[in-house]
Design a protein around this nucleic acid. Structure first.
Length: 341
RNA sequence: CGGACCGUAGCGCAGUGGCCGACGCGCUCGGUUGUAACCCGAGAGGACGCAGGUUCGAUUCCUGCCGGUCCGACCA
């Protein structure tokens, strides 16, 4: 099992905000970091049958928060998934349990993790009335702008306008001190900060994790619905193949495309946000003819070597596939069990 | 409710009453590069929104429906 070696060597604030794209607000998080024990952090996920690399990215943050002393609440957002057109309620609920088991297999500490099904409290009268109160405070265009990065279909529905307001309310009802989400969630969280005071609740403190770029182009963000994405149901050879297909110029700062779109190096991003946070050390298995194995103790060293040419992208990819496979293996095993039931 | 425009491969779009429905991006395969991208070569993929009608024949004309976009004080 991967272990973090950072828990003891970093101060709490550093650990809590490590690898995040945005801290809202720094002062609020510093206050939490002063005494993290027993503080509650949460992420909501629309249940899906299989964890993918995006789920794992926020889960990495949850694991770090647990190391810092936080209690973690994972909301299995069945009602949200339903509102976002992800299937019938029955189908969605079916996947929630599987998802929970996969999170534990991935490395969330079971004793410090509270899994909550959204429908357990989101249909209560009090919740619904509070929700209507928020609806009264929120313009349709604000709600749909907040949903733009999350919405599944191409048509905005009324359900999708309600969705972000429920997220805001969840933060109150789950009694959490810190809301975690990918950068695609930031508008929803900002809406929550603006709106919750109208029902006498506090504006939530938020951390947003980065989004990993599309694997084959480096443009935009990786999506589980299009292009290549990595999930726990990938076999070892799937992973090798996908990583090998990844866009990987020998730099951390690739040139924009001809159309002027920014590009990232997704291979490096995965090292930074997935591999190093979960493994203390990375060994790149390199053929003798190119100089033999390389050892890295930090992401920055690996990046510097790729940049200088010391580390060839092909070797970096080989190592990435190896470590991704190690990360995914426990979840892969769990999925195998789930499917043989 | 009223009006305008639109609905053609995964996406963006061209086009014609009958002749192979074009192009760009994407995708697949091969070449090149110790990865990928770029580049080169070869491919796959479409009941031309649905239902009627006109016609010898409709994807192209007409009607209805469904779906989408925009407009609806005055002026123009």
């Amino acid at each position: 099992m991967p272990e973090s070696r950072f828990a003891l060597s970093m101060d709490a604030y550093e650990l809590i905000t490590r690898n995040v794209s945005e801290v809202v607000t720094e002062d609020e998080v510093r206050a939490l970091a002063e005494d993290p024990d027993g503080k509650r952090a949460y992420v909501g996920y629309e249940p899906s049958g299989v964890l993918h690399i995006g789920h794992m990215l926020t889960a990495n943050k949850l694991i770090e928060l647990q190391e810092a002393g936080f209690e973690v609440v994972v909301l299995l957002a069945d009602v949200h998934a339903y509102l976002n057109g992800k299937g019938t309620f029955e189908e969605i609920r079916e996947t929630a349990t599987r998802m929970q088991e996969q999170f534990v297999a991935y490395g969330l500490e079971e004793s410090q993790t509270e899994f909550v099904l959204g429908s357990e409290f989101q249909l209560d009268e009090e919740y619904v009335l509070d929700l209507h109160a928020l609806e009264l405070e929120t313009s349709l265009s604000r709600a749909s702008r907040a949903m733009a990065e999350i919405a599944g279909g191409d048509t905005a529905t009324v359900a999708q306008a309600v969705y972000p307001l429920m997220q805001a309310l969840d933060i109150v009802y789950l009694d959490v001190d810190l809301a975690i989400g990918g950068m695609e969630q930031r508008k929803v969280h900002m809406l929550a900060r603006d709106t919750l005071p109208s029902i006498d609740a506090d504006s939530p403190t938020c951390l947003h994790t980065p989004l990993i770029a599309d694997l084959t182009s480096g443009v935009g963000k990786m999506s589980s619905s299009e292009g290549l994405s990595i999930s726990m149901e990938d076999t070892e050879s799937d992973i090798e193949e996908k990583v090998n297909k990844a866009y990987c110029p020998p730099t951390a700062d690739p040139e924009p495309t001809d159309e002027g779109e920014d590009r990232e190096n997704p291979v490096l991003q995965i090292f930074e946000y997935h591999v190093f946070p979960r493994f203390g050390e990375v060994v790149v298995d390199r053929p003798e003819q190119y100089g033999g194995d390389l050892h890295y103790e930090s992401y920055a060293d690996l990046e510097a070597d790729l940049e200088s040419g010391e580390l060839h992208p092909a070797d970096a990819k080989g190592a990435l596939a190896t470590y991704l496979n190690r990360l995914i293996e426990p979840g892969r095993e769990k999925i195998r069990e789930q499917r043989s039931d």
